[in-house]
């Protein structure tokens, strides 16, 4: 019951946020240098008739808010118009490109789940030990480095020198796609893994030194219970609380990674559109990515609610 209220509120908030984003995105047409007609025609010189037909087609003679309402009405039906560069439907472009980007993000999440918490737990449980020092030094290096630079090093070592993985493209068929996406997903995951490892390590180190672990050991609680219910559960909290941030980073970080590995995803679509000032595509991609990010945040908050009884009480009381 109360969960429903919470969920309802969050969904309303997402709709409102999307409205604001859509308004700002729509306004780009008028904020960009150059007249709207010229922007929508593209870089080639245009005749008066062409300009008039564009004005007609996009309703540019109507008042600003009416134009926005029309545009929004179409956008709700996933109609963002056609690409200026090649005349394709923006929505079909988006659908075509989303698959790659979403698989890349999911692959990165799998890597994150497999690596981040165990590494942080090992470092934190023996804080100050050799493993901790190595892990801490490496994560400090990776957490701060630009993704395209670490990605290039991966690409050079595993793609050029060792030739274990392909250095560009997407591939076809499940295994081939996984093979192609390994280096990009690793690049995407590395900075985030380092961040989560650092957070997990800090929490694990605190729990290991906590009174309740000492008390648990003193009263004879089984080591397995201490490791799982005390340490593992407590140390997964940073991963859960940062999930929104992490997913957001995965969805926006693909822009750089797709460029580095020449992968035809949403990110490269957006970059190309921005470089060629292909406004309808930019608008569609921006709104789609924003929607993904907002949805990811909702998922993250819901999982936080599921694992932390304190948050549950604070939110649902």
């Amino acid at each position: 019951m109360k969960i429903a209220v919470w969920l309802g509120r969050r969904l309303i908030a997402i709709v409102l946020q999307l409205l604001i984003i859509s308004f700002l995105t729509f306004s780009l047409l008028f904020l960009m240098p150059g007249s709207p007609e010229q922007i929508l025609i593209g870089p080639n010189p245009a005749t008066a008739e062409q300009l008039e037909s564009i004005r007609e087609r996009y309703g540019l003679n109507e008042p600003f808010l009416a134009q926005y309402a029309d545009w929004l009405g179409a956008a709700v039906h996933l109609d963002f118009g056609t690409s200026i560069a090649n005349g394709e439907e923006v929505s079909s472009l988006l659908i075509e490109r989303s698959g790659v980007t979403v698989s890349l993000a999911i692959y990165a999440i799998v890597l994150l789940l497999l690596l981040a918490v165990p590494l942080g737990l090992v470092a934190g449980a023996r804080a100050g030990g050799t493993a901790d020092r190595v892990i801490s030094a490496v994560t400090t290096m990776l957490v701060s480095a630009p993704a395209f630079a670490t990605g290039l090093l991966l690409l050079y070592v595993f793609g050029v020198v060792l030739r274990w993985f392909p250095i560009f493209g997407f591939g076809s068929g499940f295994t081939d796609v996984v093979w192609h996406l390994t280096l990009p997903a690793a690049t995407l995951a590395i900075a985030v893994i380092a961040l989560i490892v650092r957070q997990t390590r800090a929490v694990a180190a605190t729990i290991v030194r906590s009174d309740y672990v000492l008390f648990g050991r003193a009263r004879g609680v089984a080591p397995w219970t201490i490791w799982t219910r005390y340490l593992l559960r407590g140390s997964s909290m940073p991963l859960v609380t940062s999930m929104g941030l992490v997913l957001g980073f995965f969805l926006t970080g693909t822009v750089v990674v797709e460029r580095l590995f020449s992968i035809p995803g949403l990110g490269s679509l957006l970059i190309n559109a921005v470089s060629t000032k292909d406004l309808p595509v930019v608008q569609g991609a921006t709104i789609l990515v924003s929607f993904f990010v907002l949805l990811a945040n909702l998922l993250a908050d819901a999982s936080h609610l599921a694992v932390d009884p304190r948050v549950r009480k604070a939110v649902l009381a």
């Binding site: 009174d211 309740y212 008390f215 219910r229 407590g234 932390d308 009884p309 304190r310």
Partner: peptide, 12 residues
């Protein structure tokens, strides 16, 4: 048994 009741028990 330890001193501080506020840190004695696993909060989760």
């Amino acid at each position: 048994l330890l001193q501080d009741p506020f840190t004695l028990l696993n909060p989760l």
